[in-house]
Each structure stands twice: as structure tokens, then as C-alpha cells.
Amino acid sequence: MMWFWALVSLAVGVAIAVALSTLLGRSERASSGTYNPQALSVIGSALLSSFILVTAFLIAGTWSTYNTDRQHTYDEARAATTAYWLAGKLPPTDRDRVRGELTTYVHQVISKDWPAMGDHQTSDQAYATLDGLRADVAAIHSADATAEKKRSDLAASLDDIYSKRLIRAADVNYDMPKLLYVALIIAALLLIAYPPLVGLTANGRNVVLLSGLGAMVGLGIFIVVALSHPYSEPLTIQPSAFRHALERFGQIDG
């Protein structure tokens, strides 16, 4: 339905433009084919403003999303570090088992999750490890109320990791509305095509200048597309937060 109304809007806009140009473009200047500098300036400015508006909106939106996604990785890694520290309050056998499984999970996030996220997926193996860890902590028998409080604190911390993992999984599949990309491409094509359409001669100097414009337009589109997929090349969010968590595990053990 969204695409239908988008196409209807485009058709209405084109129809109005054609009708107005047909009805109002009957002056002697229009009939003779000469150009009105003021009119061309207005149209050129409108095209440039349209491209800048769409591009700026997309870059701002995708950059904000990119930073938010990166922050979510640090939130999850921080929750894993908290759980690792809380596991130290358990009896030695349970402590070592929980810390070992947490370390395995973080390693799997780095080695399994990250490559899969480039394809808009997450690792089932990492999910299974975290689910098994939560089940193991739930099955720990507490000797007294104090021990139960320590176990429940750890269980709550693991639930926090799980929640933040779900947020990261949702981030992987988020994308800007496709309609915005269509608007960006249309604005870019009109902006580049406008100078030749209104009579820009194809001499060497003009071709170089128009090529520079095309390069900047292409770079803007590239930035938008790259920021729209934060877990894919070339602007991939790195698992730095989880590598830092592994370093903190070693510091806590020490």
C-alpha cells in the first residue's frame, strides 16, 4: 500500500508539472526556445535543495542508528562483565562453571555472531550457550537465604544479557524505509542531469565540473548505504566491546 500511494504521488506531481508547463509555457520566449535565467535558477536551486534535504535526513538518521547500535554492543558486554563478577560470589564449583560458560558465550559472540550479523542473522550456537547458562544458574541449589540472594542477582544479570542480546538481534534487521532510498536516487539523477538538459556544453572544463558533482553525489549515496548496514562492510561495527569484556574477565580473575 505504501508503494501504491508513493507511485500515485509521483504520478500526480508529474501530471501537475506537465500541465503547468503546457499551459503557462506559451510565451514568445518559450516558443522560441530561449532560456529564462531566473526560472532556471529556481529549478536548479529546488533540485539541489531536494537532494540535500533527502541526503541530510538519511545521513543523520543512519548515523544516529549506527551509534545507537554500537552503544547496544557495549551495553551487552557491560552486562556480561557484571554477570562474571557476580558469579564470583557463588561456591567455587558453580563459580568456575558459570564463568567458563560466560567466557564461551562472549567468544561465540565474537567468532560466530559477528560474521552472521553481516548477513542479518545471529548465531544459534551463541543463543544455545546463553540459554544453557541461564538454565544452569536456575538449577543451582542455594544453602541459605544469603546464597539464594547471590544466585538470584546473577540470574537477573543473565536475564539482562539476554534482553540486550535481543535488542542487538533487532538492530541487525533494522533498515530505513526503502521509499527514502528511491527519493534519494531520483533526486540525485535529476540533479546530475539538470545542467546538460538546460544547455551545458560538453567541453572539457564543463565535463570535469559535472564529473565532480557526480562524484560528490555518488559519495553521499555511498555514505547513506554504508551507514544503513552497520554490521556489514565497509563501516562494520567491530566487536570491540566484547573483546574488552574478555580483558575484564581476566582482570577479575586476577
Rank of each mutant, 00 (worst) to 15 (best):
V109G: 09
T129W: 00
Y84N: 03
L86E: 11
S152T: 14
M117Q: 05
L102N: 13
R99S: 08
G61D: 01
D131W: 06
Y127H: 09
R95S: 12
A83T: 03
A143F: 14
S157P: 07
Y74P: 01
G88T: 11
G100Q: 10
T62H: 02
K150F: 03
R78F: 04
T104S: 15
V137D: 10
Y84C: 07
S142N: 03
L86H: 10
K149V: 08
L133K: 07
E101I: 13
L154F: 11
Q71F: 02
D69M: 00
L133E: 07
Y74W: 08
D153K: 09
T129A: 06
V106F: 00
W114L: 03
R97H: 05
R99M: 07
T65V: 06
L154I: 01
Y74E: 13
T103E: 06
W63T: 09
V137T: 00
D69W: 01
T103F: 07
A156F: 07
T65W: 00
W114S: 09
W114F: 13
R151C: 04
A147V: 11
P92N: 05
A145G: 09
A135Q: 15
A139R: 15
A145T: 14
A60E: 04
D144K: 02
H107V: 12
T81C: 03
A147P: 08
T68L: 05
V106A: 11
A87S: 13
V109T: 08
H120P: 09
L53I: 13
T73E: 04
M117F: 02
T65E: 07
K150E: 02
R95M: 10
H72G: 04
H141E: 13
A77R: 01
A56G: 15
A56M: 09
T55V: 08
T122N: 06
N67F: 02
A83I: 02
R99N: 10
A56H: 02
D119A: 05
T81G: 11
I110S: 07
D144A: 04
A143H: 14
K149I: 12
I59G: 08
V98H: 09
L158W: 03
A56E: 06
D153T: 12
S157E: 12
N67G: 02
T68G: 04
Y105E: 07
I110T: 10
T65K: 14
A139F: 10
A60C: 05
T129M: 02
A126S: 14
D96V: 14
H107S: 14
A80C: 13
Y66K: 01
G100M: 06
G118E: 05
Y66N: 01
H120F: 11
Y84S: 06
D69Q: 08
I110C: 04
E101G: 13
K149P: 01
T93Y: 02
G61E: 03
A126K: 06
F57W: 05
A156G: 06
T129G: 08
Y74T: 03
A156H: 10
A147I: 09
D113K: 10
A139Q: 14
D136G: 12
L102I: 03
A143L: 15
G132N: 14
G132H: 12
D131E: 12
A128D: 15
L102Y: 12
V106H: 02
I59P: 03
D96M: 09
L130C: 06
L53G: 15
R97E: 02
G132D: 15
F57Q: 08
E101Q: 15
E148K: 14
R99Y: 07
Q108F: 01
G132L: 11
Q71G: 08
